[in-house]
Structure formats: structure tokens, C-alpha cells
Amino acid sequence: MADAPEYLYELWNSDGLGTWKILRHPIEKKTACRIFFTYPGGRRAAVSRQRLEAAGVIHHGTARRRLHLTPPDIPGPGTASESAPTREDQIAELLRAGATYRDVERQLGAAWAEARQVRVDRAIPFPPGRAKRFRAELDAADQAAARMLLAGASVEDIYTETRCSLTRIAALRRELGSRVPARPRPRRAVDEVLALYTRATADGGHQQWTGPRRGRTKVLIQGRTQRFNVRHLTFERAHGRPPTGRVRSTCGLTDCITGTHLADAVIRGTAPATATATATATERTSS
């Protein structure tokens, strides 16, 4: 007698308005680590067996589809979602309102693949103005993009106006020999950047760096070319002298940049005697 078929179950809001259905995805094979199954349409996929059997539910793929080991309970009539509203519901609402994948990424932080999967799963059509274009329309868009490039328009403006992809805009720029126009970039003062990228801990005893970094070094960027090591900067402000050797935190918090919580080679006692004497003299002079 053949074994009864097994399924993974997915709760699906079929119309986005609370009409729930349970989708069954046939399980093809189970191994010690994975469960292999098939989505509607024949697309094969796999999930972690240990995680699914431990929790009874798992999220799969960039669209974060919620798969259950046993049939889930169907919410009551009019219920918008399992924990209203879900991320997929928010994406679907934006797509139905005519938002682009770029708009969805900006507002919800969702990847384009995730938004595309929601569009496919919920059969959300493209707005009339963004349907697939014919060759004549693509040629006209290329001509408009070329004119805008020669006029010095930004890539963002060209994309918004013509819907040419960023790759296509770059190719047109190479064909035209058009250079990227120089645009002034705003420069912040050091104290402004420190305020922007520094966050106080809950107890208020530490200042954590949340800004750009290069490797393990905390880097404070001002303008386009000037760079300052944040730890060196806060150390010098606290101790009245430039640091000697590496600067490390002494409070146990890796990202702490509080000047009094930092120690250089002189404070740690690992610097040469001449460097220690120079640093001590500098501290006395500054104080």
C-alpha cells in the first residue's frame, strides 16, 4: 500500500480582503536536514527540516512565504491577515496603488525579487503605463534618455521620465561619450557627522559609532576626500594629545568611541619610553 501523500500548508489571502484559502504544496522527499516540496506550477524548493519540525512553521524565500507543517486555522471573515497587516499585504497594497519596485524598496525596504514574487502570487497586473513596451516605444525612450543625458540630467530623473534601466542609461552614456557631470556634494562639519552617527547606549554611559567604517577601523567621512579615524578624534579631544599606536576601548563595548573609554599604547604601557615621555609632556602642556 502506497504511503499517503504529505503536504506543506500555506495560508493565502486570495483577494487581499480577508478571503483566506489553504494552499497545499506536495512534499517530494525528506532527508535528515531538508524537506523538498513543489509549489504550484512545478517550481521545486526546500526548507530546513529541523527548524520546521521544531517550530511548526517556517518562512521561505525572498517573499517570506509562511509554510506550516499542519493545516493552519483559517482567520475569521474579514480578517486582513494572520497578524494584520503582514509584510506581503503591505507590498501588495503599494503595488495595487501603482508603486514601482523601487518605490516598494524605499518605503518598506523590500527587495525587488520579494515585490515581484508578491505580484506573481497575488496576480497584481502592471499599471497600463508600465506594461511591456514595443520596439518603437523603446527606441523613443532611448532617444529621450540621450537628450536628457546631453542636457546634464541625473540618472534618477532619466529613469523616472523614460523608464530606461540603469544599465541602459549607462550604455547610452558610453555610446554618446557623455561624462558624468560634476555635482557639488554637501560637506558636513565634523561635529555634525559625529552627532549623526553616534548613538548613546540605554544606560547613557557609552557612545556607540553607527556610521561608515573600513574594516575594524571606525571611519568618520567628511566631504569626498577627507577622512578621520573616529577613535583618534575622540581620544585627542578627551586627552588633549594625538594617540600613540593603536587606540582600543577599555570599557568592553567594541563600538564605544567615548574618549575617556579609549586607551592608546601610552596608557596601556606598551609604548616606547620616548613616546611615553612626549605624550606625558603634551598632556601637561594642554592641561
Rank of each mutant, 00 (worst) to 15 (best):
V266M: 03
Q90E: 14
P26N: 07
T270E: 11
A80C: 02
T217Q: 13
A115N: 04
V247K: 00
V118Y: 01
L95D: 08
R87D: 04
P242Q: 05
T278I: 06
T198I: 05
I27Y: 01
G211K: 12
G211C: 12
A151R: 10
G98W: 04
L108S: 09
L138Y: 00
I169F: 01
F134E: 14
C256Y: 01
D73T: 15
V230I: 15
R65Y: 02
R216V: 12
N229Y: 05
L149S: 09
T260N: 06
G223T: 09
Q208N: 07
E53H: 09
T274A: 14
L138S: 08
R87K: 08
A171Q: 14
V47P: 01
A146Y: 03
E82D: 10
Y9Q: 08
C256G: 04
T250N: 00
G76V: 08
L52N: 07
S83T: 13
R147L: 12
A189T: 15
N229K: 11
I91M: 14
D139C: 07
T162E: 06
R241F: 00
K29C: 07
Q208F: 02
T285C: 03
A263L: 02
H261Y: 03
S81T: 01
T254P: 06
M1W: 01
P128Q: 07
P40M: 07
G76L: 10
T244Y: 00
L94M: 15
R130N: 09
F126P: 03
T217M: 10
G223Q: 12
L166Q: 09
